[in-house]
Design a protein around this nucleic acid. Sequence first.
DNA 1: CGTAACCGGAATATCATCATCCGCTAAGGA
DNA 2: TCCTTAGCGGATGATGATATTCCGGTTACG
Lengths: 188, 188
Amino acid sequence: MRADARRNLGKIVEAAAAVMAERGPAAPMDLIARRAGVGVGTLYRRFPDRAALLAAMGEHYVHSLAEALDRAAEREPDAWSALRAFVLWTGDAGRGALAAALAVLPEEATAGPGFMEIRARWLERLAVLVRRAQADGRMRADVTADDVVALLNLFACHPGSLPAHVASRPAWFLGLMLDGMSAGAAPH
Amino acid sequence: MRADARRNLGKIVEAAAAVMAERGPAAPMDLIARRAGVGVGTLYRRFPDRAALLAAMGEHYVHSLAEALDRAAEREPDAWSALRAFVLWTGDAGRGALAAALAVLPEEATAGPGFMEIRARWLERLAVLVRRAQADGRMRADVTADDVVALLNLFACHPGSLPAHVASRPAWFLGLMLDGMSAGAAPH
DNA sequence: CGTAACCGGAATATCATCATCCGCTAAGGA
DNA sequence: TCCTTAGCGGATGATGATATTCCGGTTACG
């Protein structure tokens, strides 16, 4: 594969994530191509249909998400801090990535080859972290890993249509919900 | 105005709220008409364009929202309980109404005659409630009324695209954020 | 019972997006 | 340096969805 082709491929995946984060999974292909600085033809040559593009995006970003979780787990001293750090990381670093990986993708791109495996592994690690934080008495016992994922989803789905007050301080709101999940909060 | 005409008008506003809650403010007029059990013609005769329809919806639902807040303030013994009751009420009773009044409307229907006044009054009452709850030491001091509104917005914007895990138990998630706002939670 | 207001939805106009195709460009090897 | 060919980009026609109009039929109300 020629060098420029490879370069463009990367640009397209990134652009797709960015545009879809703003306009949802049905965003016009035109926009994605333009954002990538590429003609529509190039886009279609590389990805015969939308599903293929979504699959590529999914694989790429779920991977980066899993990496971030592992990084947090290594660096932070305990499970609860790691969970917290990870959730807050999603708030500033990779909103587009999140929207892509969590909210947009599962609909159609679930079939990717490495996608399901890495996603499952990621979910499992998250669940372990949750259980550990609960065992440490730092996290409410009635909160599940799925709840954490749902929380991320809530913030990831269509950042473009998020209330401005939330969009401008995502970390603050994520922190609020984390506080609600912490052991200190009233369990009802 | 003939009796059936008036009846239909009500049905249309309700249908518009329901459909727009699911599909956003750009939902097809067809759908709205069908949901109302009415022909498209009737819809257009009553509301010359989308903006008119949005305005009508806005007035109607902001009103009902203000009523709910006042009701909660009367019934509950203290400010924090009232706030909590109101927020949780939005979770089950009137999601469509919320989506309409908070997320969908401000974009275009802000110009309605009674709209701005009642909205401002509502916001003011909400702010009073927040200040009282904070004075009572039941609510975190760094949370503002705008934050509460943003929270509602977060759940109201496009229920159709909410993660299933959230959509099926809205009250649970709202409760989580309320817990995060309560005085008990760690302020950081 | 008459009439005029009102209804419904078929028909048309409009528009945005998809997806293809082909002449041009330039990457990379000899 | 030059040649070959993978690769590029965007104009183009097809397609499907939505807005909006219009009129024959219906029904509320005096």
